[in-house]
């Protein structure tokens, strides 16, 4: 097979479209410390909402993003309400909302469908506006134009998220995830912060779903099935690349991780790996990355038995360089 750079540029564009998923998962998984499966449903419903507005209502693709954002935020809020107000376990709450969202996604997709319910939607049937049309004046390939648009949107979203997470509200949300007792004792309404963070996270993911649908000119109700694992893989790859827990770097890491992941998958596919095989490889990659601290810990314990690394954190300082 001849090397075609546009294939990889297309993969990069896909990675950029999915970067919102990675950042959304970073928010719930790393900042709030909650396994939130709502994102699977938010990704699909975001694609469906955007797709139907473009095909059935003739909207401009860009204009559908705020609507996707809103729908995703409502989904996150629903999970947040179930978890904080009705005290339903976070994982279960998110599964319930995800399950409900599946029906909503199908219903949205089926608006105006001739034969009742449909579970997939083509976003381009010859007349609909497409995101890359915005750059029609540039003498570039379709893939290149898509990649530029996706990069621009991803950068704007990353900057907005950075602003939010560095604000007073952002600090309050982070404190809620790190130490809830401390957060309440400095006057933070931790329930509200959890709901807000889940809303923002799922809003990002729904926008990502809309971008993915637009980038592929196609969406189906099951796009969310692998969302968690793919998003986590991107987050973890990003952490390996960026190696900083500071908010700005973590957001950039998730973005880069998503791009790297999708280009890596493209490379694998070029080596005759089947699409279905990438799922197992991705799952193994995530398992390995999540287990790394444990495996690393075993090695350390063997190596430096008397080091302070094995003491509970509050005792470390007594022996560490900071002791006073």
């Amino acid at each position: 097979m001849a090397f075609n750079p546009d294939t990889y540029i297309q993969a990069g564009a896909t990675g950029l479209a999915y970067s919102g998923l990675a950042q959304g998962i970073w928010l719930s998984f790393r900042v709030l410390n909650l396994p939130d499966l709502t994102v699977a449903g938010s990704l699909a419903v975001g694609g469906a909402v955007s797709g139907i507005l473009i095909t059935a209502a003739g909207w401009q693709p860009l204009a559908t993003l705020p609507v996707a954002l809103l729908v995703g935020m409502l989904a996150g809020l629903a999970t947040g309400l179930l978890h904080t107000k009705l005290k339903i376990n976070a994982l279960l709450a998110s599964i319930l909302v995800m399950t409900g969202l599946y029906t909503i996604t199908l219903r949205v997709m089926s608006i105006g469908a001739a034969g009742g319910i449909r579970s997939e939607l083509s976003l381009y049937n010859g007349t609909e506006a497409q995101l890359r049309d915005l750059l029609a004046w540039l003498p570039l390939s379709v893939q290149q134009r898509s990649a530029i648009i996706m990069a621009a949107i991803a950068i704007v979203l990353t900057l907005l998220l950075y602003w939010l997470m560095s604000s007073q509200l952002g600090l309050a949300m982070r404190a809620t995830g790190v130490n809830e007792q401390m957060a309440r004792s400095v006057g933070i309404n931790t329930d509200n912060m959890k709901m807000l963070l889940l809303a923002v996270s799922n809003g990002m993911v729904a926008v990502s779903g809309a971008l993915v649908a637009q980038n592929n000119s196609y969406t189906d109700a099951n796009v969310g099935n692998t969302a968690i694992v793919v998003g986590l893989a991107a987050v973890i790859l990003g952490e390996v690349v960026v190696r900083s827990a500071a908010v700005g770097w973590a957001l950039i890491g998730a973005l880069l991780g998503s791009v790297i992941y999708h280009i890596a998958v493209q490379i694998a596919l070029a080596q005759q790996v089947q699409v279905t095989d990438t799922q197992l490889v991705t799952a193994l990659l995530v398992i390995f990355a999540l287990a790394l601290p444990q495996i690393g810990g075993q090695f350390k314990r063997l190596g430096q038995r008397r080091s302070t690394a094995n003491l509970p954190t509050h005792q470390r300082g007594r022996l560490g360089e900071d002791a006073d």
Binding site: R174, V178, H314
Partner: peptide, 10 residues
């Protein structure tokens, strides 16, 4: 507990 009053990761 000194860990309780502060957010360690911040």
């Amino acid at each position: 507990d000194p860990l309780l009053g502060t957010a360690g990761a911040m």
